[in-house]
Design a protein around this nucleic acid. Structure first.
Lengths: 204, 204
DNA sequence: CATTTCATGTAATGTGTTACATGATTAA
DNA sequence: TTAATCATGTAACACATTACATGAAATG
């Protein structure tokens, strides 16, 4: 058992960018791989035993003391090897989707509420993301070799996807209101309405 | 312990649409909540014990026999109650994102490969989804009360998101090639380039 | 006055994956 | 002939969440 799991690689990735405490890691990993503190602390210990990490103890006043973890050469080595392998398929778990699946059996009022709730969540997400993006953009030394490049493009990705999902939500709200699917129908980018859709997205 | 988890509700949702075998459920749940057969069979037994489901045994020739599960009134009741509650936050786990996080430490060639690999996965997904969408569209009785409505809009959502992610991938490839971020910069829909971006998306 | 932020840890429980087990039929 | 589809199940293990435990400082 000398292997580590995906969470382990996520930790190595974050520490490869800069040394962090477990507490900080929880925050930095949020964009990439959300994790609870109860999971990260035992993992850090385990990884230190495997000599992939080391820590130094930092005493603080007014705050609890902390451990700052850094990646070792051995850790960097296995991270680089892993980065070259092709990633496994993503896992998405989302109660909202399950509820949408059953939307046909829900009264119109509740369906609307469900989708509107999603929209307001997406809007909150987008507001937070634009703050993160703006923050990174203030540090002018931003190029593809910058340690912030990965985070930057990931925030961007999340923003785009949230925006697109919001558009989808609005399309669904329209369908629910009009009670038939004979107008917009497909968004497959290859059917008869494919270019019409682009116009709808832009609100023209 | 009289509660069921999200997977349980996913099963109820699928069976609310139509009675299925465990084997079929695995396929139907793919859009909403991917699950392995090793998890679904014990879950079905558990849910039948709670009287949320019932099954009938169907003998087959040339194929293994099967159990067709249906939702009970009790099951329908707790599903409807659950549908009215607001969904918990989604969980996304994606090794690709972790690798992107560390993209700054990878040589250009490998970064390109990583992103191009993602693009080809997305394209495969999109092809499959458009088949699913086309299939549903052939059954003409499609309105918001149709039992296929939920699946239909979910396929649509997945297609949109895949398409948007592909656009993002192409943006990233451009950044890697040009090695600086001074041209497109933000896609926050509120900065100086926000409308410029829409033009880029349309390829004008 | 209550909650959030800082900061680390363990224990119990719940959930998910991989591997084991079987086996006929059909399509590439 | 190799793999996929059909079809169901169990056992062992790996991974994740919730709850328990502590406690000062800052913010609303």
């Amino acid at each position: 058992m000398n292997t580590i799991n995906t969470l382990g690689y996520a930790i190595l990735s974050a520490l490869g960018r800069k040394p962090c405490s477990g507490y900080e890691l929880v925050h930095y990993l949020e964009v990439v791989r959300p994790v609870q503190h109860s999971q990260i602390y035992p993992m850090l210990t385990k990884m230190e035993q495997k000599e992939l990490l080391v820590h130094e103890h930092v005493e603080q006043t007014g705050k609890p003391n902390k451990k700052i973890f850094s990646i070792t050469e051995k850790g960097k080595g296995i991270l680089e090897k892993w980065l070259a392998e092709s990633p496994s398929d993503p896992i998405n778990r989302d109660e909202f989707l399950i509820k949408v699946y059953s939307i046909w059996m829900v009264e119109e009022e509740n369906s609307m509420k469900l989708v509107q709730g999603r929209i307001s969540n997406l809007e909150k997400t987008m507001t937070n993301l634009s703050k993160n993006i703006a923050e990174i953009e203030q540090n002018k030394e931003l190029d593809t070799m910058s340690k912030n490049f990965g985070r930057y493009i990931l925030f961007n990705r999340k923003f785009r996807l949230a925006k697109e999902e919001k558009t989808w939500c609005q399309w669904v709200l329209g369908l629910i209101k009009n009670k038939n699917l004979n107008i917009p129908l497909l968004y497959v980018g290859m059917g008869k309405f494919s270019n019409l859709i682009e116009v709808v997205v832009l609100g023209i």
